[in-house]
Nucleic acid binder design. Structure first.
Lengths: 226, 226
DNA sequence: TATTTTTCGTTAGAGGATATAACAAGAGCA
DNA sequence: TGCTCTTGTTATATCCTCTAACGAAAAATA
């Protein structure tokens, strides 16, 4: 769905190719939602597209490449959603922006749980979730989080461990922004808390305890910005 | 591995049956560690046991029942690990016990990531992770957490939302302990934070950022008991 | 326009999975 | 000894991914 608006394909063939690839991905997403990543079947996609199985191997090297493509699209989509959430925050004060981002994160995950799981769930069997392309694609979302935190101003205490401090600065530097290690650490902790809540909610754990996930989330939210 | 020490099997046959089931599970765990839940193959287990595929269907109704069994074992094992961690806490002060439990939780997850994922990772395709047996099995671990928190004494502020308060008390009552809703909420939040950190670590996210997961965890730990 | 080259979709098939069915061989018990 | 119930075996149906070889269609070239 998030079409890369890069250089538009020139020749007719390439345009056709791109369109077929897009259609395949779309069907794949539907299938993913229904049967999870393990149920993603090239044959079935072909059947649903009115084309016979192996035809799709002209467009994707195999099941894994298709998955990778879906993961990258999902990262981009998540970053877009966060960005939109931040900029539509009611009142543009930094704390409000952070809260809006947290809600946006959760909303995206709830709207597309299968895609969220694709990003942050357990790695699939033979699949390397930390390949270079993927790490790069995940960057945009993290940048938004750090940017929002930096605006927040009230800097948290520096991490007490020297090695961690230097690891954090190295990480920040590698991503081309120059940021206080304390803020970087805080970003990571906020992310991990968000992920903890959201992934438990998606897995249905709160519901199976008879708790309203909305309430649980809102109860946790103040602790994030504090 | 965590043999249910319930009623020992009486007849010879039953004893043999139980032993075969145990062996199958053991091989299944090895396979799980290597190829993930999706790679769990009844045929392969049979081959590794020197027996031909369909033979195992005499012992397990199918792949799913085998998985369920593994999940239940894992819950029990986790609860044992937490219990041991708590009772071996250095100094028996409540805060130390809570920290010890958190470390125990992480240690267990790191020692057996595939089993941790089995419990708290995304649900498998056609598999109902909230079946009654499973929810019951998960109880023990949560009870340990709540028990430790209750000892802590310094009660947190009550949840501000009335519906959440009543949901929490209902949940606590259903599990046969009578506990302040504020403490129940806190237990859930602590659990979610622990899960957030641990699951990101297991997925390799910290490592791929160049951060030492030990350091990240220790940096977060004080915020849990506070 | 006519020919050559590239791309596409098809079937066939190898290899592997879950799971069922039908059958042979064994263990336990009267 | 003979009967029954349990176990493990093969054979089979049906699904999957992915490769190979073959027509057919479309694009590029002369």
């Amino acid at each position: 769905m998030p079409a890369t608006p890069a250089s538009e394909p020139s020749t007719m063939r390439e345009r056709y190719r791109a369109q077929v690839r897009a259609e395949v991905k779309q069907v794949a997403l539907r299938q993913l939602a229904e049967s999870g990543p393990a149920g993603l079947s090239v044959s079935a996609i072909g059947k649903q597209l009115g084309v016979s199985g192996p035809a799709l191997y002209r467009y994707f090297a195999g099941r894994d490449e298709l998955l990778t493509e879906l993961v990258i699209d999902a990262y981009n989509d998540l970053a877009d959603a966060l960005s939109a959430a931040i900029s539509h925050a009611p009142g543009q004060e930094p704390p409000a922006r952070l809260e809006a981002m947290a809600r946006g994160y959760r909303s995206w995950a709830l709207a597309e749980p299968h895609r969220y799981r694709l990003l942050f769930g357990p790695p699939l069997p033979g699949y390397d979730a930390h390949a270079e392309r993927l790490v790069a694609a995940s960057q945009a979302a993290m940048n938004l989080l750090i940017g929002t935190l930096r605006e927040l101003g009230n800097r948290p205490p520096a991490p007490s461990s020297p090695p961690l401090t230097s690891q954090l600065t190295a990480w920040a530097r590698a991503h081309a922004f120059d940021v206080d290690p304390a803020i970087a650490l805080r970003a990571i902790l906020i992310w991990s808390r968000l992920h903890g809540l959201v992934s438990l909610e998606i897995a249905g754990n709160f519901a199976s305890m008879g708790l309203d996930p909305d309430e649980v989330f809102e109860a946790q939210l103040p602790a994030l910005t504090a």
